[in-house]
């Protein structure tokens, strides 16, 4: 319930009506949306039990490693009821055709694979918020100062998932493990997304806000 309460508010994409409907507009909209969501996700992280008591450098390292996984999990969760479309925001849904036109097809297909996995499992909101916290705590940053403190954070969110599954899905003792086993695909998809947006950044055609740029640079 703590994690449910910490969930960031809804964000709208608000595509600029003055821009022509092309790939530049789509990518500009996505980068702007990502930047605003990142600000909210930093506020969200601070609400996780134990996160704020980590050193500031360790807080930064976890976020620098996990930010894209967190963004993608949110899109995935919001897309569970959509048909082969990704719901980036309530006012910004992208289907496969649009993804193709925007050069996002590879990423789109990878994210849809996650959507199908979680849809088949019937991913619940409680599980989604806990997985997001696990992705942050388990981000495998190479330069953590206080490994034990990060381990405590991991244990705390891992235990939350196990408790939830024990109470709500006692008939499927492997459900927590099944959820954890989806994380490699999330990591892989996130790496693809970071790579894609780094190439977009190098093209220099899409305006990007500073926080988004900062985090992209942390991964290069």
């Amino acid at each position: 319930s703590h994690l449910l309460g910490a969930e960031p508010e809804k964000v709208y994409a608000m595509p600029d009506p003055a821009l022509p409907d092309d790939d530049i507009k789509a990518l500009t909209t996505l980068c702007d949306l990502a930047d605003r969501e990142l600000v909210l996700n930093i506020g969200w992280a601070k609400h996780l039990p134990g996160f704020s008591s980590l050193s500031l450098p360790d807080q930064m390292r976890l976020l620098q490693s996990a930010w894209m996984e967190i963004l993608i999990l949110r899109v995935v969760f919001h897309s569970l009821d959509a048909q082969d479309s990704l719901v980036f925001a309530e006012d910004y849904v992208m289907d496969t055709e649009q993804a193709k036109r925007t050069g996002l097809l590879e990423l789109h297909v990878a994210i849809l694979q996650l959507v199908r996995k979680y849809r088949a499992m019937g991913l619940e909101r409680e599980e989604f918020v806990t997985l997001k916290a696990i992705a942050l705590a388990n981000s495998d940053s190479m330069h953590i100062e206080d490994v034990e403190a990060v381990q405590r954070l991991q244990d705390c969110v891992h235990e939350a998932l196990q408790d939830y599954e024990q109470h709500r899905h006692g008939d499927d003792p492997r459900r927590a493990g099944k959820l954890i086993m989806t994380l490699p695909l999330l990591r892989q998809t996130s790496a693809k997304a970071v790579q894609y947006f780094c190439s977009i950044k190098q093209d220099g055609r899409i305006p990007m806000h500073k926080l988004f740029l900062e985090l992209l640079e942390a991964n290069t």
Binding site: I42, G43, L56, P57, M60, Q64, L211, E214, L215
Partner: peptide, 15 residues
């Protein structure tokens, strides 16, 4: 750290 000043600032804010 200088490279990541926005992240740093947002984490320091007490919101």
């Amino acid at each position: 750290k200088e490279k990541h000043k926005i992240l740093h600032r947002l984490l320091q804010n007490s919101t």
